[in-house]
Nucleic acid binder design. Structure first.
Length: 600
RNA sequence: GGGGUGGUAGUUAAGUUGGUUAUAACGCCGGCCUGUCACGCCGGAGGCCGCGGGUUCAAGUCCCGUCCACCCCGCCA
């Protein structure tokens, strides 16, 4: 029990005091950020969540205290009582980098709440410690001002969301995390039920069905800031548990969703970052995004757009190049990206790009440099074979001028797009084409309803099976599923997918047709999604919604390079918690209680 | 599941064609210093070179395996 704390409640934070407070007796609490010992003067930077204040121990104020301050060390947690003094009149100089830089505290009383072991790394912003060490000492990592700012931002994003949606008549409603396992989509974490042996819950991968049930129940406008769980492999922007801002609305169409979202996102950016976003966001169709950028989440802050050469070369029968001809005969795609002359690449760099292509699963990197007034190619394996006609056509399609480098990818469209999109972002970084402090917000619209699965030769839902097809596609759901478009949309910021949603099937007959097209039998529909279909039969309203990845949004807004920097206790890439050591084995007694045994 | 990068002092890194006692910076410990704030000066401690095999007279360095972290592909309706 600290007498000091009882008798001396904190009067200010380490960010509060300035020249206005001269002569005041104050009490500050915090951590020792740094020590500077000058023999007859000992300076300490005291840090709390709010800032830093310099405190000074002087022998003439209290000789015993000055002597005792000698034992203080970095990251000790202390409280001090003292007088606010002017640094200048004390013979020092102000520190313009600190808000409290004009003053210092002459310490009269010192309380050491707790000593600290030597910290594993320095508690400062420009840290170069490897991430595994930061995660292993996460508490110390979270002490760093940079990290504290990230979590303050996260808090502000959540509060701005609640304020905006509350004002807009949304109800914040909760849905279960322990849910019925439903097939399809992300792999679920499975939770054994003790009370129902041999039965299992799934952790909700999203509240999708429940929010639709809310709409049927007449809740009209729902939102939730909710944890979702997906047992899939991790990435820099993917964690097994993550947070969504989940929204659903009744009696609306796409335009209502766009309007609501634009209002919400603008409000968040305005109140958190004081950034005014465009009044309505750009829109680009999925087809156009894939064609121009090879990605359904393009970063359109820079150019380096793709050119689809497939139609051009089809007309020219491959233009004399064997590789082109072979690709076309197999129904493949040929795409190019033109790197302007201004962005010079050395031979080594181009060969490194080829390594990158191969690491992404591509076969190689075709290239050609335009020369001789667009009548020749150099440094190209295609130069010997290509007909003059095709060469010109390609140059023209790519808008290639002399000295420009054309990079080619050919083969299956999915791979071509992925590889070329990877090259595009790599080159944008290489040539610093990405403007800082800009917010590129766009809608991706008109997604295909289904994706073709090559392995099983079946169609699977591109978004999820509750997504409504465009009305004009309902008739051809079965006859031509590949051509059907959905009423789904994604929100992309700076090349990150931060949100996605759709208008749902509220007509049980349409829903049944979609399931049918997906090859889900009537019996399966009832056993797996019966509760939803049942609800739809009780007067379901037209409805739709959207969900935002809160972590990704915060990552982008904080300028962080990984989602882990805005999640307090994230998992490592192999899905473990390096701080607590989770997951851990459990003992046989626990297993027995659950009616489980190991086979291995 | 596949591909890549990395692992050397508390931290970040250097370490040559394999060859004396494995370096540096920061941090840490001790001393000096009355105006610092990346304080300064003097001195010192600190190493299973991720782990396990192998090659060799000799391995941080070469080979094989393995673990961990991160990035990418697959996966993420």
């Amino acid at each position: 029990m600290s007498q000091f704390l009882n008798q001396n409640p904190r009067t200010h934070t380490c960010h509060d005091l300035n020249i206005q407070n001269l002569g005041q007796k104050v009490v500050l609490m915090g951590w020792v950020q740094s020590l500077r010992d000058h023999g007859g003067r000992r300076f300490i930077d005291l840090r709390d969540r709010y800032g830093i204040t310099q405190v000074v121990f002087k022998p003439e104020t209290n000789a015993k205290l000055h002597a005792r301050s000698h034992e203080l060390r970095s990251e000790w947690c202390i409280g001090i009582k003292g007088l606010v003094e002017d640094r200048k009149s004390n013979g020092g100089s102000p520190n313009p980098r600190l808000k409290t830089g004009e003053i210092e505290i002459d310490v009269q009383e010192l309380e050491i709440f707790n000593r600290s072991q030597t910290p594993p790394f320095l508690i400062e912003n420009q840290i170069d410690t490897h991430e595994d060490k930061r995660l292993a000492h996460r508490v110390m990592d979270l002490r760093r001002p940079e990290m504290q700012a990230n979590f303050k931002l996260r808090h502000q994003v959540m509060q701005a969301t609640r304020r905006y949606l509350d004002k807009d008549q949304f109800l914040e409603l909760e849905t279960p995390a322990l849910v019925k396992y439903t097939p399809g989509g992300a792999r679920n974490f499975i939770v054994p039920s003790r009370l129902q042996p041999k039965s299992f819950f799934a952790l909700a991968e999203s509240p999708q069905i429940f929010k639709q049930l809310f709409m049927v129940a007449g809740m009209d406008r729902y939102f939730q800031i909710v944890k979702c769980f997906r047992d899939e492999d991790l990435r820099g922007d993917r964690q097994p548990e993550f947070t969504q801002i989940d929204i659903e609305m009744s009696f609306i169409n796409e335009e209502d969703i766009y309007k609501m979202t634009e209002g919400l996102v603008k409000s968040i950016f305005d109140s958190v970052l004081n950034v005014k976003l465009a009044s309505s966001f750009k829109r680009i169709t999925h087809t156009e995004a894939m064609s121009r950028y090879g990605s359904d989440k393009p970063d359109t802050r820079f150019g380096l757009e793709h050119t689809d050469l497939t139609p051009v070369l089809k007309d020219l029968n491959g233009g004399g190049v064997t590789l082109f001809e072979q690709t076309l005969s197999k129904g493949g795609m040929i795409k190019a990206m033109c790197i302007p002359k201004a962005h010079e690449l050395s031979r080594t760099e181009v060969s490194k790009l080829e390594d990158l292509v191969k690491s992404m699963g591509g076969l190689g990197l075709g290239r050609a440099k335009a020369a001789e007034n667009g009548s020749a190619w150099t440094q190209s394996p295609f130069a010997k074979q290509i007909t003059p006609e095709a060469l010109k056509a390609i140059n023209q399609a790519c808008k290639a001028n002399d000295g420009d480098l054309i990079l080619f990818q050919m083969g299956k469209p999915k791979l071509v797009n992925m590889v070329l999109a990877g090259l595009r972002t790599r080159l944008a970084e290489r040539f610093k084409l990405i403007p800082k402090n800009t917010w590129d917000v766009l809608w991706i619209t008109d997604f295909p309803l289904f994706e073709h699965d090559e392995d099983t030769n079946t169609y699977i839902a591109a978004h999820h099976p509750f997504t409504s097809p465009r009305p004009e596609d309902i008739e051809r759901l079965k006859s031509n599923p590949g051509a059907c478009k959905s009423r789904a949309y994604d929100l992309v910021i700076n090349g990150n997918e931060v949100g996605g949603g759709s208008i749902r099937n509220y007509d049980p007959e349409v829903q049944a047709k979609v399931f049918e097209a997906l090859g889900v039998s009537a019996e399966e529909q009832e056993s797996k999604f019966g509760f939803l279909l049942e609800a739809l039969r009780f007067g379901a309203p037209p409805h739709g919604g959207i969900a935002f990845g809160l972590d990704r949004l915060c990552m982008i807004m904080a300028g962080a390079s990984s989602i882990r920097d805005v999640i307090a206790f994230p998992k490592s890439q192999r899905g473990t918690d390096l701080f607590t050591g989770a997951p851990t084995p459990i003992d046989n007694k626990q297993l027995l209680e659950l009616g489980l045994t190991f086979r291995i």
